[in-house]
Amino acid sequence: MPTFKGNNVTLQGNPVKVGDQAPDFRVLTTALEEVTLSSYPGKKLISVIPSIDTGVCDAQTREFNEKASSLGGTVLTVSNDLPFAQRRWCSASGLDNVVTLSDHRDLSFAKAYGVLIEEMRLLARSVFVVDSNGVVQYVQYMDEMTDEVDFAAALEAFEQAN
């Protein structure tokens, strides 16, 4: 059972696995524009975080954007933070090329990927790599939401995806 700071949590939605067609979703950009999975052609690394304003989430967002930028494709960071908070974080962090997406309105991403923490209405820390054909090539759901993801494994999967 997944935990958040050692406390059991319940994940809602439909978990995905390697080989699945990546589910579509509707989320908001920091400019409040609605986008979907198909808004980002090519391969994608989808980094999912509980909140951009925490140390582990900040580090995850920075790490993927710094290391994956040379691998082609797009890195998307999805959370339930309001688009305004995401925009403020991007500006304060000096990372203007980060694509942050907010799932706060409909929980569309959370339900499609099985990452909604029922007790907190936050997204569970996870990583997905989707190839240019829309097929999931890598999945990592964290057992403990405050732990760091396996950056090396996710980046290797992203590099190998077509």
Rank of each mutant, 00 (worst) to 15 (best):
T74K: 00
W89H: 08
I52F: 06
K44M: 08
E118A: 09
R26Y: 15
P2I: 13
F151V: 08
T36Y: 10
T77A: 01
G55P: 02
L71G: 03
A112N: 09
S47V: 05
A161C: 11
T29V: 09
V35R: 03
S91Q: 10
V127L: 00
L82T: 09
A59V: 00
V129F: 05
S69H: 09
E148L: 05
D131Q: 00
T54R: 03
M120C: 09
A161E: 11
A31F: 12
E63C: 06
V135M: 07
F109L: 02
R125W: 07
E118R: 11
E34L: 11
A68I: 07
R121W: 13
N80G: 10
N133H: 08
N133L: 06
S91C: 08
Q12K: 15
V18I: 15
V115D: 01
S47P: 04
L122R: 01
T29K: 07
E63Q: 09
T77C: 01
V48G: 03
L11M: 12
N14G: 10
N80W: 10
D103H: 06
D53C: 02
M145W: 12
V127P: 04
T10C: 12
S39W: 10
G72L: 08
L32Q: 12
P50T: 02
T3V: 13
H104I: 13
F109E: 02
T54E: 04
A152L: 11
G6R: 10
S126N: 00
